[in-house]
Design a protein around this nucleic acid. Sequence first.
DNA 1: GTACTTACGCCTTTCTACGACAAAAGTAGA
DNA 2: TCTACTTTTGTCGTAGAAAGGCGTAAGTAC
Lengths: 416, 416
Amino acid sequence: MGDGSRKSTAKRPRVTPVSLSAGDLFDLVRTGAAGSRSDLRRLSGLSRTAVTARVAALSEAGLVVLGEDRPSTGGRPATGVMLNAEAGVVLAAAVGRSRTQVAVFDLAGRELAAASLDHAHGSGPEEVLPPAVRRLAELCADLSGSGPVLGVGVSLPGTVDPARGVSIDSPVMGGWDEVALAPYVAAVEAFAEAPIFVGNDADVLARSERMGHAQEFSDLLVVKASTGLGLGIIAEGRVVSGHRGAAGEIGHTKVDDAAGLPCRCGDTGCLETVAGGWALVARLEEEGRPVDHVRDLVARALTGDAEAKHLLRESGRRLGDVLGVAINLLNPEAVVLGGDMAGAFDVYAAGVRESVYARSSALATSGLQVLPATFGDRAGVVGCAAMALDQVLRPSAIDARLVQEKVGPVGLEPTT
Amino acid sequence: MGDGSRKSTAKRPRVTPVSLSAGDLFDLVRTGAAGSRSDLRRLSGLSRTAVTARVAALSEAGLVVLGEDRPSTGGRPATGVMLNAEAGVVLAAAVGRSRTQVAVFDLAGRELAAASLDHAHGSGPEEVLPPAVRRLAELCADLSGSGPVLGVGVSLPGTVDPARGVSIDSPVMGGWDEVALAPYVAAVEAFAEAPIFVGNDADVLARSERMGHAQEFSDLLVVKASTGLGLGIIAEGRVVSGHRGAAGEIGHTKVDDAAGLPCRCGDTGCLETVAGGWALVARLEEEGRPVDHVRDLVARALTGDAEAKHLLRESGRRLGDVLGVAINLLNPEAVVLGGDMAGAFDVYAAGVRESVYARSSALATSGLQVLPATFGDRAGVVGCAAMALDQVLRPSAIDARLVQEKVGPVGLEPTT
DNA sequence: GTACTTACGCCTTTCTACGACAAAAGTAGA
DNA sequence: TCTACTTTTGTCGTAGAAAGGCGTAAGTAC
């Protein structure tokens, strides 16, 4: 050194504030990557001062709690920093064709209360949503002192527009064209402020796996096999929703076996007409053995009914034919089977495996696993909650909450 | 200060540095979103001071240039800030079965020089790579004063591991199992420092569309139809590579039409055996009309050869059968056809459209477009360059380069 | 009991980012 | 042609955040 003739050596600003925000640190805590301020310092590269300041802000906002835990690693034990699961709740409502599941979750994703509401098959929003919202209000009332409602996740069996929070249409339920969900939720005063997140049922099932199998695998196909057939895609750890959120319409792929058979979507030849739950139910009915719902068919299969088992296995095989293409395309590490039909997992998975291994290339199927949905028949509400939590607790949302709080506390109680 | 009883009211740090780094601003300039410091101020929300400092740093590093352009919008005209395309180059090498295309691109993605090297069908890395690297060195030498080599993009017809930069295997070429590419490139001293990015040929084709159709559409399927059949996926604006980078193996999907037919992959019943370029060539050969390469078949079709046209259309139809499933799954806005067979786009696309519209649901195909690859037979090198540029010029890489430069100039010349 | 390790609060220094002031360089209209 | 207005840009002083040193707390290892 020793020059100085060139002004570039004068004083150059640093220009590179790669520092992480409080929300980013919160995310590290929430995901369990960090459990103490020291962890955060190591992971973020920030100085102690910066980490301390951010954690203090998060703590004041009630988003994290400082416990005296953490075993020593040879020196002074660290003060535990963990997510304050009691800082609020999210609501989940998984609307099905004849049943709506509702539940309340804390910020750690634990279910605090749940209920199920039956309604007539194919009901419209007026019959479904107000009772569900009322029930959620009751659940919240019973859970006194559980913090404010930070978000609401809703899943619908049909096409939705996540951006606008409206139902676009539903093949299995009437009256859901262009229905905005916010007004129904806002009917309860305590929910009026909460943002609403809407997802397709198959998509939401995929999101539930982000709290399950996706912690192990980053590329997954998640099948929802119930009355209809849907597919959720997790690619590189992210849920892929496709253009206008309409990815995963696997049920309406045309297959040769179904040529000419009319589908509920108005077209003919769809996979659903030979492998969808409604079609299996219809088949059984034709044979003079009426069942009310796919769940009944599954129940029969579980008690050893040969015909029901055969139908399920056959359905799995046909699904596998189409799934094989998807597997070649996306090369997932595992296929997760969810929905009512996966209730008889062994039978259904046997059918799926049979044709998947025949249809896909050796490369794609080597090491491919076929797994049951982590949360079984609770996957709907878990996925709705996961969807809401992912949005409500994402770093930028946390940062926004903190600056908002500096102006005037709204939403979360500062400390109380 | 006089309180101290409650520290929470004292002075709270801001804790939320959402400010954008110099690299982020560079990205805005590079993508054309911003063309002046005022634009950057508006887009980033940073203060004039901060923007000025960052732009000064970028300018000193030679990454952007300040021109006196920009028309006035009613007041003083803004100084134009634009990407300094001459700050360096990236190299592209698209390895094919019998031909390797190489090219040099500037940072704006413009091709500065190009060449093509033929080699025996199915050659190994020893025969292919050294000549290609030598040719690139010659091209660079001719382009004196074009800046340092910042990155190298290579595409291979087979499976690759992008993370490690190695070829895993190739169905069409021998000797490519577990081949690391870096040593070959580093043989030329001027290239030794440059990072290497490796991609599958179909994947790279998809990346080329990020500079083409993907500027308009965020969800695309990109088909590479040449000797083999491959598929690249762009979902929500991102290229999806799948687990171990092996997504898009559409050619080895099993189809009923091909039952029993042996495929070059060792299996039987693959789509490629009835719709892949190599199969069409074999078919023509059986009929006593030998052709050397798919390109010859396409050339014949373009001159009106009925048999060639029929084969191409039939191939497109069969591809469309499988593609229909993918379309239902991912609901893209457009399907892009590339590779040699797309050279006869009209014929090939007709076949694809025919079966795609029959196979997919009305929802997925309404508004679906079938388009030719933006860069035709140059898509390979363009995609390689795009892959390298996306990595080399991404915000975090730019930031790293700037701090590096503060310590001691390496890589880019400071101003010179 | 002593030395060592790890965690963390407080303080000072450094440096970034902001906003105000002021000048430059155009356009629009009298 | 000249003047008022708009927009862009450079410079300066100040507030505030991040870093790092120092000292202390609270464990473990021997």
